[in-house]
Each structure stands twice: as C-alpha cells, then as structure tokens.
C-alpha cells in the first residue's frame, strides 16, 4: 500500500470538492508512472478500495472518507411510499430493515446474501454499487488489461469460467454487485451530487456503462460527484419480486448467476409487466428483454416461465469455459418467475 494523506469530509460539498479522481481513472495510469499523483479518491466502507490499495492497483495521493457526513446512511420512506436509501447505509443495515424487507424483499435478500456478515457490517450500498470488477486478470497488477488502459483482454483467451456470457466483447467482466441486480430490476434511480449541490438523477440502469460505452469505467460517476442515494420507486401492491442467486458454495462466494424479477400480475394471474435482470452475466446488470416480452399477457406457469428463461438466454455468447452459465441462468430465471408468481400464502399473525 502506498503512502497517502487522509481527510474526513463532513459535508457532501466537502466530499465532492475533494473527489478529484474517479477510481477507474486512477487505475489506468501506466504502471511505470504509477505513483501518488495529486488526486483524491473518496472512500465509503472501503472494502474494495482497501483491496485495490493493498495490491498497489490504486496509488492515490489522498483518500477522503465519507463516513462522518451526517445522515448519509439514512433509509427513509418517501411520501409517495417509495424509499430513499442513503449511500452510506450498510448492506447489513439494508438486509435487516423491516420496511424494506416487507416492501422490497428482493433488495434485502440480495444485500443479505452478499459477502460475509463481517463485510456486510462495513460495506455500504454506494461502495457496493461502485466497486470494481472481480475479474482475476483485472485484479492482478501483472496484467495490464483493457480496463486498466492496456491493449488486451486476458480473460477471453484465458481463464473465463466466472466471466460474462452477454456483452462480453471486448471485455468480459461481470458486474460485481449483486444488490445492483435487484435495484435495476426495480427501476431504482441514483442521486449524484456535485460540490455546488446540484443533483444529477438518473436511472441506475443508465448509470452503469457497458464496455461499448466505456471500456474503463463501469458507471457514469464523474469527478467531484458523490453518489448520495438510491431511490426505490413506489410499487403497486400487486407487484411480486424475487431475487435468487447461486454460488458454487452456499455462503460467502461470488454468485455464478443471480436473477431478480419484478412482476405485476392481474388478479387473474396475468402478467401485466415484467422486469427480469441477470447478475454475474454481463459487464453491467443485464436486462433480459426477450424474456420480459415473452411474459406479457401470459399466465405464468412452468411452460411460460421456461419459455421466457430460454428466450432470456437466446442471445448469450458464452466463452470457452463458461457455457455452463446458460443452463444455470435458465434454471434460476424459471425458478424465480415461478416463485414470484406463486400464490402468496398469508402468514398467520
């Protein structure tokens, strides 16, 4: 880890003024010239930042902490019965929040199944959404890959068993955030505030950038902007949501595949709208539009759910070692749809 100076921002304005450097930009410097520049990066929980610092993948001159900014971790119910999630809310805080658990169970499930209890106690929502990919070539200083400003992707011809099956050219990372899968499915928006206090609000789906839009950044965060909140839209009472994930191991493992579905069903069980998003599938949370379309106007059963799952995977372009993800996603999508459409059994008080 390189030497850096340390600052503690006490207001969002202070933090934004300090945040001169996006982590992704700091990581594209040539290794020979890599050394503390004059940039300041901001740190929330810092789980990922510390990993990058320890591997010398990131050598900032200054690190500014967001931890002492008041109320940035608040989880607030909005007047329209949507919810506003402060960026500094921890994953553990999200997972345990009673109102969220009741209204947005896909979000609490995704947060509660991320990482380990210890990490969930420190990791923040904002940091989780902004963390860099886990691609093992990206994470090793020895490989100067496309995403670090180099000329090659090493995963496509190399070890790609955990890589993307959609949108995987020329870079095959998968987006590392599981929570993002659920949030994109819900149509969440993100608030970005600059040093003057101006708020830029955009849909989380648009906030994430696929390689064809930006090869080195996974999102549209700009210098001197602070991600302050995620807004969850109000949902009709008829909405059903499910998040499922599958790792090789039962806990503390990055998912091989994760799926979030949000359905709106008529009283007769007919699908009025569907949102299906796949995680660990593509460089950004991957919306399975063909599957969504396949469900509209349909009653959801084994057959329609299976057809939608197959439609979701029709465009997959697996690499040499990750073709197994295709049947795995199919199974998870079908199961998630059937679980979401299953009649709700009222719990006895």
């Amino acid at each position: 880890m390189n030497r850096f100076t340390w600052a503690t921002a006490r207001t969002i304005a202070e933090a934004a003024a300090a945040a001169s450097t996006i982590v992704a930009d700091a990581m594209t410097a040539l290794p020979e010239t890599a050394g503390p520049g004059d940039g300041t990066i901001v740190k929330a929980g810092g789980i990922d930042i510390l990993d990058l610092l320890k591997e010398n993948l990131l050598v900032p001159a200054r690190v500014a902490s967001l931890r002492d900014i008041p109320d940035l971790d608040a989880i607030v119910e909005e007047a329209d019965s949507g919810c506003r999630l402060g960026a500094m809310a921890t994953l553990a805080g999200l997972a345990a929040h009673p109102l969220l658990r009741q209204r947005y169970p896909a979000v609490t499930d995704a947060a509660g199944e991320s990482a380990s209890p210890q990490i969930r106690n420190l990791a923040t929502l904002g940091g989780n959404l902004l963390q860099r990919p886990r691609c093992w070539y990206f994470r090793a200083a020895e490989y100067r890959c496309l995403r670090k400003g180099g000329g090659n992707c090493f995963a496509i011809p190399g070890e790609n068993q955990y890589h993307a099956i959609f949108g995987n050219r020329p870079c095959a990372i998968v987006h590392p955030s599981t929570v993002a899968t659920a949030l994109v499915a819900l149509g969440a928006t993100v608030d970005l505030i600059d040093a003057e206090g101006a708020v830029r609000r955009l849909s989380l789906e648009d906030f994430f950038l696929p390689p064809e839009r930006d090869l080195q950044r996974e999102n549209d965060l700009r210098p001197h902007e602070i991600l302050t909140a995620i807004n969850l839209p109000p949902l009709p009472t008829s909405a059903r949501m499910v998040h499922l994930r599958q790792g090789e191991k039962d806990a503390f493992d990055w998912p091989l595949a994760d799926v979030a579905v949000l359905l709106d069903l008529s009283p007769e069980g007919i699908c009025r709208s569907a949102s299906i998003v796949l995680g660990a599938a593509a460089p950004v949370p991957h919306r399975a539009k063909p599957a969504e379309n396949a469900l509209l106007g349909k009653h959801i059963d084994e057959s329609t759910a299976g057809a939608a799952a197959r439609a979701a995977l029709a465009g997959a372009t697996p690499l040499a070692k990750n073709a197994y993800k295709t049947p795995l996603f199919e199974a998870l999508i079908r199961r998630a749809l059937l679980k979401a459409a299953a009649p709700i059994v009222k719990e006895r008080g």
Binding site: W136, Y137, E142, Y143, F154, G158, E159
Partner: peptide, 10 residues
C-alpha cells in the same frame, strides 16, 4: 487455476 498463457496462478 493457472493462466495457460503466462503460467501464473489467477
């Protein structure tokens, strides 16, 4: 897991 192009453990 060794990367076959570099022989480095990934």
């Amino acid at each position: 897991i060794l990367d076959r192009h570099t022989g480095r453990m990934v």
